[in-house]
Protein backbone atom coordinates (compact mmCIF):
# COMPACT_ATOMS: atom_id res chain seq x y z
CA UNK A 1 0.00 0.00 0.00
CA UNK A 2 2.75 2.44 0.96
CA UNK A 3 4.45 1.71 -2.39
CA UNK A 4 1.26 2.57 -4.28
CA UNK A 5 0.96 5.79 -2.33
CA UNK A 6 4.66 6.61 -2.80
CA UNK A 7 4.50 6.47 -6.61
CA UNK A 8 1.85 9.18 -6.56
CA UNK A 9 3.46 11.54 -4.09
CA UNK A 10 5.55 14.25 -5.80
CA UNK A 11 9.23 14.26 -4.89
CA UNK A 12 9.21 10.83 -3.20
CA UNK A 13 11.82 8.28 -4.32
CA UNK A 14 9.71 5.13 -4.27
CA UNK A 15 12.77 2.86 -4.51
CA UNK A 16 14.05 4.40 -1.28
CA UNK A 17 10.69 3.67 0.32
CA UNK A 18 10.98 0.06 -0.87
CA UNK A 19 14.54 -0.23 0.46
CA UNK A 20 13.61 1.18 3.88
CA UNK A 21 10.77 -1.33 4.14
CA UNK A 22 13.05 -4.17 2.91
CA UNK A 23 15.71 -3.34 5.50
CA UNK A 24 13.14 -3.29 8.29
CA UNK A 25 11.81 -6.71 7.24
CA UNK A 26 15.29 -8.25 6.97
CA UNK A 27 16.13 -6.91 10.44
CA UNK A 28 13.01 -8.62 11.77
CA UNK A 29 14.02 -11.82 9.95
CA UNK A 30 17.48 -11.65 11.54
CA UNK A 31 15.85 -11.48 14.96
CA UNK A 32 13.55 -14.45 14.24
CA UNK A 33 16.44 -16.47 12.76
CA UNK A 34 18.52 -15.72 15.84
CA UNK A 35 15.84 -17.49 17.89
CA UNK A 36 16.40 -20.75 16.02
CA UNK A 37 20.20 -20.63 15.97
CA UNK A 38 20.52 -22.98 18.89
CA UNK A 39 18.70 -26.00 17.49
CA UNK A 40 19.30 -28.14 20.58
CA UNK A 41 17.20 -25.81 22.76
CA UNK A 42 14.52 -25.48 20.14
CA UNK A 43 10.94 -26.53 20.93
CA UNK A 44 9.15 -28.06 17.91
CA UNK A 45 6.00 -25.94 18.22
CA UNK A 46 8.07 -22.80 18.59
CA UNK A 47 10.15 -23.84 15.56
CA UNK A 48 7.00 -24.08 13.46
CA UNK A 49 5.89 -20.61 14.59
CA UNK A 50 9.33 -19.12 13.82
CA UNK A 51 9.36 -20.74 10.36
CA UNK A 52 5.86 -19.45 9.64
CA UNK A 53 6.86 -15.91 10.53
CA UNK A 54 10.09 -16.11 8.50
CA UNK A 55 8.20 -17.31 5.42
CA UNK A 56 5.61 -14.56 5.86
CA UNK A 57 8.29 -11.86 6.08
CA UNK A 58 10.24 -13.44 3.21
CA UNK A 59 7.19 -13.30 0.96
CA UNK A 60 6.89 -9.55 1.56
CA UNK A 61 10.61 -9.06 0.78
CA UNK A 62 10.11 -11.00 -2.47
CA UNK A 63 7.15 -8.81 -3.38
CA UNK A 64 9.28 -5.70 -2.70
CA UNK A 65 12.05 -7.16 -4.91
CA UNK A 66 9.51 -7.74 -7.68
CA UNK A 67 8.10 -4.22 -7.30
CA UNK A 68 11.62 -2.74 -7.33
CA UNK A 69 12.43 -4.66 -10.51
CA UNK A 70 9.19 -3.58 -12.16
CA UNK A 71 9.85 0.09 -11.36
CA UNK A 72 13.39 -0.22 -12.72
CA UNK A 73 12.20 -1.84 -15.95
CA UNK A 74 9.54 0.82 -16.35
CA UNK A 75 12.21 3.53 -15.80
CA UNK A 76 9.85 5.08 -13.31
CA UNK A 77 10.63 8.68 -12.40
CA UNK A 78 8.93 10.21 -9.37
CA UNK A 79 6.67 13.16 -10.12
CA UNK A 80 8.63 16.36 -9.45
CA UNK A 81 8.14 18.04 -6.15
CA UNK A 82 5.77 20.97 -6.40
CA UNK A 83 6.75 23.89 -4.24
CA UNK A 84 3.75 25.50 -2.58
CA UNK A 85 2.78 28.95 -3.91
CA UNK A 86 4.31 31.79 -1.98
CA UNK A 87 1.89 33.83 0.10
CA UNK A 88 1.00 37.14 -1.48
CA UNK A 89 2.73 40.07 0.15
CA UNK A 90 0.48 42.95 0.70
CA UNK A 91 1.85 46.29 -0.22
CA UNK A 92 2.00 48.60 2.64
CA UNK A 93 0.04 51.64 1.78
CA UNK A 94 0.71 54.63 3.86
CA UNK A 95 -1.93 57.20 4.42
CA UNK A 96 -1.05 60.65 3.14
CA UNK A 97 -0.13 62.93 5.92
Amino acid sequence: MKVLVAIRVPGVDVREVIQTHRRYLVELMQQWTHLKEDEARFDLSFALVVDAELYRLDSVVRWLDAADGRLKRAKFEPPPAISPPLPKIRKRVEAPR
Binding site: Q19, T20, R22, R23, L25, V26, M29, Q30, W32, T33, L54, Y55, L57, D58, V61, R62
Partner: peptide
Protein backbone atom coordinates in the same frame (compact mmCIF):
# COMPACT_ATOMS: atom_id res chain seq x y z
CA UNK B 1 16.39 -12.89 2.50
CA UNK B 2 16.04 -16.13 4.50
CA UNK B 3 19.67 -16.94 3.79
CA UNK B 4 20.82 -13.39 4.53
CA UNK B 5 18.96 -13.34 7.84
CA UNK B 6 21.51 -15.76 9.32
CA UNK B 7 24.15 -13.02 9.07
CA UNK B 8 25.27 -10.66 11.81
CA UNK B 9 24.99 -7.77 9.36
CA UNK B 10 23.24 -7.53 5.99
CA UNK B 11 24.49 -5.09 3.35
CA UNK B 12 22.28 -4.14 0.42
CA UNK B 13 23.84 -3.61 -2.99
CA UNK B 14 22.12 -2.00 -5.97
CA UNK B 15 23.63 -1.14 -9.35
CA UNK B 16 27.14 -1.75 -7.97
CA UNK B 17 26.71 0.49 -4.93
CA UNK B 18 26.14 -0.26 -1.27
CA UNK B 19 22.90 1.51 -0.57
CA UNK B 20 21.95 0.38 2.91
CA UNK B 21 22.67 -2.05 5.75
Amino acid sequence: AQLASWADRVLFIRDGQMVDQ
